[in-house]
Protein backbone atom coordinates (compact mmCIF):
# COMPACT_ATOMS: atom_id res chain seq x y z
CA UNK A 1 0.00 0.00 0.00
CA UNK A 2 2.92 2.32 0.77
CA UNK A 3 4.30 1.94 -2.72
CA UNK A 4 0.88 2.54 -4.19
CA UNK A 5 0.75 5.93 -2.49
CA UNK A 6 3.94 7.08 -4.24
CA UNK A 7 3.59 9.31 -7.25
CA UNK A 8 5.56 11.99 -8.98
CA UNK A 9 3.78 15.25 -9.58
CA UNK A 10 5.14 17.62 -12.20
CA UNK A 11 7.07 20.41 -10.52
CA UNK A 12 5.35 23.61 -11.59
CA UNK A 13 7.40 25.46 -14.16
CA UNK A 14 7.47 29.20 -13.89
CA UNK A 15 7.93 30.27 -17.51
CA UNK A 16 5.09 32.05 -19.25
CA UNK A 17 4.87 29.25 -21.81
CA UNK A 18 4.61 26.60 -19.11
CA UNK A 19 2.03 28.64 -17.19
CA UNK A 20 -0.03 28.98 -20.35
CA UNK A 21 0.24 25.23 -21.01
CA UNK A 22 -0.90 24.47 -17.42
CA UNK A 23 -3.75 26.95 -17.75
CA UNK A 24 -4.94 25.45 -21.04
CA UNK A 25 -4.61 21.88 -19.74
CA UNK A 26 -6.81 22.66 -16.74
CA UNK A 27 -9.30 24.62 -18.82
CA UNK A 28 -9.75 21.82 -21.37
CA UNK A 29 -10.00 19.26 -18.57
CA UNK A 30 -13.03 21.15 -17.24
CA UNK A 31 -14.55 21.41 -20.74
CA UNK A 32 -13.98 17.68 -21.35
CA UNK A 33 -15.50 16.80 -17.99
CA UNK A 34 -18.64 18.88 -18.66
CA UNK A 35 -19.10 17.42 -22.15
CA UNK A 36 -18.51 13.84 -20.99
CA UNK A 37 -20.96 14.19 -18.08
CA UNK A 38 -23.59 15.74 -20.36
CA UNK A 39 -23.08 13.04 -22.98
CA UNK A 40 -24.03 10.50 -20.28
CA UNK A 41 -26.95 12.27 -18.65
CA UNK A 42 -28.27 14.55 -21.43
CA UNK A 43 -30.18 16.38 -18.67
CA UNK A 44 -28.99 19.88 -19.43
CA UNK A 45 -29.32 19.85 -23.22
CA UNK A 46 -32.68 18.05 -23.15
CA UNK A 47 -34.09 20.62 -20.74
CA UNK A 48 -32.76 23.57 -22.72
CA UNK A 49 -33.91 22.18 -26.08
CA UNK A 50 -37.43 21.24 -24.99
CA UNK A 51 -37.86 24.64 -23.34
CA UNK A 52 -36.53 26.56 -26.38
CA UNK A 53 -38.72 24.65 -28.83
CA UNK A 54 -41.80 25.15 -26.65
CA UNK A 55 -41.15 28.89 -26.48
CA UNK A 56 -40.93 29.32 -30.26
CA UNK A 57 -44.01 27.10 -30.72
CA UNK A 58 -46.00 29.20 -28.25
CA UNK A 59 -44.88 32.41 -29.95
CA UNK A 60 -45.84 30.91 -33.32
CA UNK A 61 -49.40 30.24 -32.17
CA UNK A 62 -49.75 33.35 -30.01
CA UNK A 63 -48.56 35.80 -32.68
CA UNK A 64 -50.42 35.36 -35.95
CA UNK A 65 -48.25 37.61 -38.06
CA UNK A 66 -47.99 38.59 -41.70
CA UNK A 67 -44.63 38.32 -43.46
CA UNK A 68 -43.58 41.93 -42.72
CA UNK A 69 -44.46 41.82 -39.02
CA UNK A 70 -42.79 38.44 -38.75
CA UNK A 71 -39.48 39.88 -39.99
CA UNK A 72 -39.62 42.61 -37.37
CA UNK A 73 -40.35 40.33 -34.37
CA UNK A 74 -38.08 37.43 -35.31
CA UNK A 75 -34.94 38.80 -33.64
CA UNK A 76 -36.84 39.54 -30.41
CA UNK A 77 -38.44 36.08 -30.29
CA UNK A 78 -35.11 34.41 -31.02
CA UNK A 79 -33.18 36.21 -28.29
CA UNK A 80 -35.94 35.80 -25.70
CA UNK A 81 -35.80 32.06 -26.46
CA UNK A 82 -32.00 31.93 -26.26
CA UNK A 83 -31.90 33.97 -23.05
CA UNK A 84 -34.48 31.89 -21.17
CA UNK A 85 -33.10 28.55 -22.37
CA UNK A 86 -29.58 29.78 -21.56
CA UNK A 87 -30.60 30.57 -17.97
CA UNK A 88 -31.87 27.01 -17.56
CA UNK A 89 -28.54 25.67 -18.82
CA UNK A 90 -26.43 27.94 -16.63
CA UNK A 91 -28.39 26.97 -13.53
CA UNK A 92 -28.13 23.25 -14.28
CA UNK A 93 -24.44 23.42 -15.15
CA UNK A 94 -23.52 24.97 -11.79
CA UNK A 95 -26.00 22.87 -9.81
CA UNK A 96 -24.10 19.79 -11.05
CA UNK A 97 -20.93 21.25 -9.50
CA UNK A 98 -22.67 21.93 -6.20
CA UNK A 99 -24.48 18.57 -5.88
CA UNK A 100 -21.67 16.42 -4.49
CA UNK A 101 -19.38 19.25 -3.45
CA UNK A 102 -17.62 19.07 -6.83
CA UNK A 103 -17.12 22.84 -6.91
CA UNK A 104 -14.85 22.43 -3.86
CA UNK A 105 -13.03 19.65 -5.72
CA UNK A 106 -12.40 22.03 -8.62
CA UNK A 107 -11.28 24.84 -6.33
CA UNK A 108 -8.84 22.54 -4.51
CA UNK A 109 -6.89 21.94 -7.73
CA UNK A 110 -3.54 23.78 -7.87
CA UNK A 111 -4.46 25.76 -10.97
CA UNK A 112 -5.26 29.38 -11.71
CA UNK A 113 -8.96 29.59 -10.86
CA UNK A 114 -9.69 31.61 -13.97
CA UNK A 115 -8.90 28.39 -15.91
CA UNK A 116 -11.88 26.84 -14.12
CA UNK A 117 -14.03 29.84 -15.07
CA UNK A 118 -13.03 29.66 -18.73
CA UNK A 119 -13.53 25.88 -18.78
CA UNK A 120 -17.05 26.24 -17.39
CA UNK A 121 -17.81 29.18 -19.71
CA UNK A 122 -16.64 27.30 -22.84
CA UNK A 123 -18.74 24.28 -21.81
CA UNK A 124 -21.79 26.52 -21.31
CA UNK A 125 -21.15 28.23 -24.65
CA UNK A 126 -21.00 24.89 -26.47
CA UNK A 127 -24.34 23.84 -24.92
CA UNK A 128 -25.94 27.17 -25.84
CA UNK A 129 -24.64 27.01 -29.43
CA UNK A 130 -25.98 23.46 -29.82
CA UNK A 131 -29.44 24.64 -28.71
CA UNK A 132 -29.25 27.60 -31.10
CA UNK A 133 -28.25 25.35 -33.99
CA UNK A 134 -31.36 23.22 -33.37
CA UNK A 135 -33.69 26.17 -32.80
CA UNK A 136 -32.70 28.05 -35.98
CA UNK A 137 -33.92 25.48 -38.56
CA UNK A 138 -37.10 24.78 -36.57
CA UNK A 139 -37.80 28.51 -36.38
CA UNK A 140 -37.06 28.88 -40.11
CA UNK A 141 -39.69 26.24 -40.92
CA UNK A 142 -42.35 27.47 -38.47
CA UNK A 143 -42.04 31.15 -39.42
CA UNK A 144 -41.12 30.59 -43.07
CA UNK A 145 -37.98 32.73 -42.72
CA UNK A 146 -34.41 31.93 -43.74
CA UNK A 147 -32.18 32.49 -40.71
CA UNK A 148 -28.99 30.98 -42.09
CA UNK A 149 -27.01 34.06 -43.08
CA UNK A 150 -23.35 34.46 -42.06
CA UNK A 151 -24.07 37.87 -40.50
CA UNK A 152 -26.84 36.52 -38.27
CA UNK A 153 -24.71 33.53 -37.23
CA UNK A 154 -21.90 35.94 -36.27
CA UNK A 155 -24.32 38.01 -34.15
CA UNK A 156 -25.64 34.87 -32.45
CA UNK A 157 -22.08 33.78 -31.65
CA UNK A 158 -21.10 37.19 -30.24
CA UNK A 159 -24.32 37.54 -28.27
CA UNK A 160 -23.94 34.05 -26.82
CA UNK A 161 -20.33 34.75 -25.77
CA UNK A 162 -21.39 37.87 -23.83
CA UNK A 163 -24.39 36.11 -22.30
CA UNK A 164 -22.37 33.09 -21.19
CA UNK A 165 -19.42 35.20 -19.93
CA UNK A 166 -21.53 37.09 -17.41
CA UNK A 167 -23.94 34.18 -16.87
CA UNK A 168 -21.20 31.76 -15.81
CA UNK A 169 -19.86 34.23 -13.24
CA UNK A 170 -23.31 34.98 -11.82
CA UNK A 171 -24.40 31.33 -11.76
CA UNK A 172 -21.28 30.60 -9.67
CA UNK A 173 -22.46 33.26 -7.21
CA UNK A 174 -26.10 32.18 -7.28
CA UNK A 175 -25.35 28.47 -6.76
CA UNK A 176 -24.19 29.23 -3.21
CA UNK A 177 -27.70 30.46 -2.32
CA UNK A 178 -30.71 28.35 -1.43
CA UNK A 179 -32.85 30.34 -3.90
CA UNK A 180 -30.41 29.83 -6.78
CA UNK A 181 -33.12 29.00 -9.34
CA UNK A 182 -34.80 32.38 -9.01
CA UNK A 183 -31.69 34.33 -8.03
CA UNK A 184 -29.81 33.77 -11.30
CA UNK A 185 -32.35 35.38 -13.68
CA UNK A 186 -32.88 38.26 -11.24
CA UNK A 187 -29.14 38.97 -11.20
CA UNK A 188 -28.43 38.07 -14.80
CA UNK A 189 -31.04 39.84 -16.92
CA UNK A 190 -30.37 43.42 -15.75
CA UNK A 191 -26.63 42.95 -16.25
CA UNK A 192 -26.85 41.20 -19.60
CA UNK A 193 -29.40 43.69 -21.00
CA UNK A 194 -26.79 45.63 -23.06
CA UNK A 195 -25.77 42.39 -24.79
CA UNK A 196 -29.38 41.41 -25.47
CA UNK A 197 -30.31 44.85 -26.82
CA UNK A 198 -27.27 44.95 -29.12
CA UNK A 199 -27.91 41.36 -30.27
CA UNK A 200 -31.62 42.02 -30.97
CA UNK A 201 -30.86 45.23 -32.88
CA UNK A 202 -28.07 43.63 -34.93
CA UNK A 203 -30.14 40.50 -35.69
CA UNK A 204 -33.18 42.63 -36.64
CA UNK A 205 -31.07 44.80 -38.93
CA UNK A 206 -29.63 41.77 -40.73
CA UNK A 207 -33.05 40.11 -41.14
CA UNK A 208 -34.59 43.33 -42.48
CA UNK A 209 -31.61 43.91 -44.79
CA UNK A 210 -30.78 47.39 -43.47
CA UNK A 211 -27.44 48.88 -44.65
CA UNK A 212 -24.40 47.10 -43.17
CA UNK A 213 -23.08 50.34 -41.59
CA UNK A 214 -26.15 50.48 -39.31
CA UNK A 215 -25.75 46.85 -38.27
CA UNK A 216 -22.02 47.22 -37.75
CA UNK A 217 -22.55 49.72 -34.92
CA UNK A 218 -24.42 47.06 -32.93
CA UNK A 219 -21.90 44.35 -33.78
CA UNK A 220 -19.07 46.61 -32.57
CA UNK A 221 -21.01 47.18 -29.35
CA UNK A 222 -21.40 43.41 -28.93
CA UNK A 223 -17.65 42.91 -29.33
CA UNK A 224 -16.97 45.64 -26.75
CA UNK A 225 -19.46 44.14 -24.28
CA UNK A 226 -17.95 40.68 -24.78
CA UNK A 227 -14.45 41.95 -24.03
CA UNK A 228 -15.67 43.87 -20.94
CA UNK A 229 -17.72 41.00 -19.53
CA UNK A 230 -15.02 38.39 -20.11
CA UNK A 231 -12.42 40.69 -18.49
CA UNK A 232 -14.62 41.38 -15.46
CA UNK A 233 -15.37 37.69 -14.98
CA UNK A 234 -11.64 36.85 -15.34
CA UNK A 235 -10.78 39.39 -12.61
CA UNK A 236 -13.51 38.57 -10.12
CA UNK A 237 -14.04 34.80 -10.37
CA UNK A 238 -11.49 34.05 -7.64
CA UNK A 239 -13.28 36.39 -5.21
CA UNK A 240 -16.71 35.05 -6.13
CA UNK A 241 -15.86 31.42 -5.36
CA UNK A 242 -14.00 31.96 -2.09
CA UNK A 243 -15.99 32.28 1.14
Amino acid sequence: MDEQLSVSVEVPRVGLRAQTANFLRAMWAVVWKDLAAEWRSRELLTGMLVFALLVILIFNFALELDAKARASVTSGVLWVTFAFAGTLGLNRSMAAEKDRGCLDGLLLAPVDRSAIYFGKAIGNLIFMLIVELVVLPVYSVLYNTNLFSPGLLLVILLGSVGYVAVGTLLSTMAVQARTRDILLPILLFPLVLPVLIAAVKASGGILQSVPWEEVQVWINLLVVYDVIFVSIAFMFFDYVVEE
Partner: peptide, 21 residues
Amino acid sequence: LLYGDLTAMENLRFYGRMYAI
Protein backbone atom coordinates in the same frame (compact mmCIF):
# COMPACT_ATOMS: atom_id res chain seq x y z
CA LEU B 1 -16.39 15.77 -4.58
CA LEU B 2 -17.00 13.33 -7.45
CA TYR B 3 -19.11 13.54 -10.60
CA GLY B 4 -21.96 11.04 -10.63
CA ASP B 5 -22.22 10.97 -14.42
CA LEU B 6 -18.56 10.03 -14.88
CA THR B 7 -17.05 6.63 -14.20
CA ALA B 8 -14.56 6.10 -11.36
CA MET B 9 -11.74 6.06 -13.92
CA GLU B 10 -12.96 9.24 -15.64
CA ASN B 11 -13.28 11.06 -12.32
CA LEU B 12 -9.69 10.25 -11.38
CA ARG B 13 -8.49 11.04 -14.90
CA PHE B 14 -10.11 14.47 -14.64
CA TYR B 15 -8.46 15.22 -11.30
CA GLY B 16 -5.19 13.76 -12.60
CA ARG B 17 -5.24 16.33 -15.40
CA MET B 18 -6.00 19.13 -12.95
CA TYR B 19 -2.99 18.09 -10.81
CA ALA B 20 -0.72 17.40 -13.82
CA ILE B 21 0.19 13.91 -12.63
